[in-house]
Simulated scan of single mutants.
Amino acid sequence: MATGHDGTESVSEFPPTQAAGRGRAWYRGDCHVHSVYSNGGELTPEQLAAGAREAGLDFLATTEHNTSEAHSAWGSHANDLLVILGQEVTTRTGHWLALGIDPGQVIEWRYGLRDDVVDQHLNQVFQAGGLCVAAHPHAPYASGVFMYPYQRFDVVEVWNGLWASGRPWNTDNEAALAEWGRSLAADIQGGRWRPAMGNSDTHLENQIGIPHTVVLAEELSTDAILAGIRAGRSWIAESAAVELSLTVSARDRSAGIGERLKMSEEPAVVRVDVRGVPSGMVSFHTDRGKVYRESLPDHGSGSVEWHTSANESAFVRIEVRHPEGNVAALTNPVILT
């Protein structure tokens, strides 16, 4: 038996690396979550698990600040919920998420950009089969601003819920999205691009899942979810009330989010289906910037189509915004070659 941060006794065990899922499917999850094991965290793992289920999530990642102490507190709370072991690495010049690390593993955090040691700590995560995420790049405090180059990181957290001051979207997220969006064309041309993801950075009640990442995975397991995120087969939703699909088709071929569509000079049809964003605005973004937009009906459900070709667009990604401009959903790109 062990005594947890809530003062109760619990059996210490690590959560399983696979949960009962739906086979190959889209799974919703929040990969930046803090409990009472982090400074500022007010919820127990049991409360977080209940909140995740209520928010319609299939998985979450436990990412306490610079400790693995919570890893063994999740076993009895996982059940049908996949819990990925992780850590928020809070260095002096930016924070990053280590996802899918080994049980009890702790990644060093006492350094900054000028120490030139971040690569060796990223390698520790890679060796464990994990994923490295640049967290809240424009967080509004000194050490939270991300100063490392993105090149060695797998993913960029362009949407962070905590620093939105009670709102689902703010100017710091807008800056992170714009920065990531501008880099896509060069990164895709260079052969390695970093997908975007969104997380709540939960510390308090009623924050979990706002936003979260929706991942296409072969099964509900740590390896499969991380593989889907790493490949960019994912999109970001402000809540489970928002549904989205994106498909690009040319003749008898089609591709979805995070995939490549090989085509010649024939035109392609880009189709987006959205639910849960009344009077929202759907915009299409390529290497030429924002190229098309169209409004959704008042009831929030609708389909929008746009035509392009590989000669015109290296990729297509989607943003869905509420009438006041806040983002409700955004996707990783479909790449056209």
Rank of each mutant, 00 (worst) to 15 (best):
F14Y: 15
F14I: 11
P15S: 09
P15T: 12
P15V: 02
P16A: 07
P16I: 08
P16L: 06
Q18C: 13
Q18E: 14
Q18G: 07
A20P: 07
G21T: 10
R22H: 15
W26G: 03
Y27S: 06
Y27P: 03
Y27M: 08
R28P: 02
G29W: 13
C31Y: 13
C31S: 11
H32V: 09
V33L: 09
S35A: 07
V36E: 12
Y37T: 10
G40R: 11
G41S: 13
E42P: 02
L43Y: 08
L43D: 02
T44N: 04
E46R: 15
E46D: 15
Q47V: 06
L48I: 14
L48Q: 02
A50E: 15
A50V: 13
G51W: 01
G56P: 08
L57G: 00
D58R: 02
D58F: 04
L60Y: 13
A61P: 04
T62C: 14
T63D: 10
E64Y: 10
H65S: 05
N66G: 02
T67N: 11
E69T: 13
A70T: 13
A70D: 15
H71S: 01
S72Q: 14
A73D: 13
A73H: 14
A73C: 13
W74E: 01
W74C: 01
W74K: 01
G75C: 08
N79W: 06
N79I: 07
D80I: 07
L82S: 06
I84S: 00
L85H: 06
V89A: 04
V89P: 02
T91F: 06
T91Q: 08
R92S: 10
T93A: 10
G94S: 06
G94I: 06
H95N: 12
W96N: 00
L97E: 05
A98K: 01
G100A: 10
D102M: 04
